[in-house]
Design a protein around this nucleic acid. Structure first.
Lengths: 229, 229
DNA sequence: TTTATTAATGTAGATTTCACACTTACATAA
DNA sequence: TTATGTAAGTGTGAAATCTACATTAATAAA
């Protein structure tokens, strides 16, 4: 019999999370200094093992919550990594997930307790195992996502300026965008509310603040669009 | 310690393959009648368990080879399915893969021995476990793929007519395409060689046969394009 | 009131997309 | 040989979208 359950080998299943955040310095990922062997003290994605009574999505949100205190964050499964010796201790297959969070919102104390730290995506340390590869693939996915779904809601403060949104997209796509074209394309999506309020930090003139129109935003999340930036 | 290897639960890891083929009747998937319990006799994707010394990609190609005799087929990992009771016998996480193959090329004898059969994607039987969901997600991915990579090489005979290529795309996208626009868009990719030879089956006039220009095709595989059909 | 700084805004030309219909080549039958 | 039927093959113009680009507006500080 070709497919017998008995002959199968069981393996450990891990979940590793690529957590993106954005602040005035740019796009960042959250990393921790691993506190157990092997590779103790080295930088790593935050991760953990799948439990017997848990689905992968739950494991990913549990892990995110453990390290950041955040709940109800949208996460997306990316890819399963299965190189034989990717984890030297024991055969472990790891499924990567990515999340977008607002850097301001997480529990700073938790982060500190776990020796976690935000790193600019272009200036991150060498990571254990195949985590650097995971990060690169996550960035690719995030780039793709910007072209078919609205993003920003998860990464920006509630009120933000057009410039912040522009800089977020520039950071993700890693290229300069034309301000006027960007604004008209974003406006054509109809997901922003322009407030009467201005942010006076950045200039003498002050720049208008925006919020996301949650209904329109979520409507756009359901049906892919094509956004050529 | 939060992440100890010892506390982790091991699980079975399966690989299930969505194998697409195309013939004059349209787009099809290869299914087998399961020959072991549970759900013996029911229709299922072809699949198997990951072995201890095997990476997921290898397991997928091994499984494809076992059931079709085919080698060197490009396969792509899709998604890990982890619902607790998706397999009633034992906790099993399954990673799905998809492949595109030429229906003519496989080993018909093997297929028969395994009680495998090709089904039109729109007329497939109910499948065990979450396999129907896997198929639906694979179709989505295949549709996406047509818009950023060349396909067809894998699904069509070596020499094919423009009409066959058009019908392949129509079958995948599940919509009618304008013949003239399709031809000019495909031609603009520069991946086809027009032969002097004609196929006289389909009409009195006969239609020119094409082959893929392998170099150009593979060049296009490396760098995504945007193809709006 | 002048100056300095960043925000805000519109257009024209180029390119791409889309909708659409007639002619050609050939085999078969009269 | 001629007529007929069938699918193949081919091009254009209008509309929509994309791209590049420079000036004016609002305000705070000097």
């Amino acid at each position: 019999m070709l497919n017998s359950y008995s002959s199968a080998d069981k393996v450990l299943l891990a979940v590793d999370c690529i957590i993106f955040g954005f602040d005035n310095e740019g796009l960042k990922i959250l990393l921790i200094q691993r506190d157990f062997e092997p590779e103790k003290g080295k930088w790593s994605l935050i991760g953990g093992f799948l439990k017997r009574d848990e689905v992968l999505d739950s494991a990913a949100t549990r892990i995110l919550n453990t390290y950041t205190g955040l709940n109800d964050i949208y996460m997306e499964q990316l890819y399963a990594y299965s190189e034989i010796d990717r984890d030297p201790v024991e055969r472990t297959i790891s499924v990567s997930y990515f999340a977008l969070i607002n850097i301001e919102n997480h529990n700073a104390e938790l982060i500190q307790n776990y020796h976690a730290e935000w790193f600019p995506i272009n200036d991150a340390p060498h990571l254990i195992f195949d985590h650097n590869e995971m990060v690169q693939n996550a960035i690719k996915r995030l780039r793709y996502k910007t072209s078919v779904k609205p993003i920003g809601f998860e990464l920006l403060p509630e009120k933000f300026t057009m410039r912040q949104l522009l800089e977020l997209y520039e950071a993700i796509l890693s290229k300069e965008l034309d301000k006027r074209n960007f604004i008209s394309k974003i406006n054509s999506l109809g997901i922003l509310n322009k407030l009467d309020e201005k942010d006076m930090q950045s200039s003498r003139k002050g720049s208008y603040l925006y919020t996301f129109n949650k209904e329109k935003y979520e409507e756009k999340l359901l049906n892919d669009f094509v956004l050529n930036l």
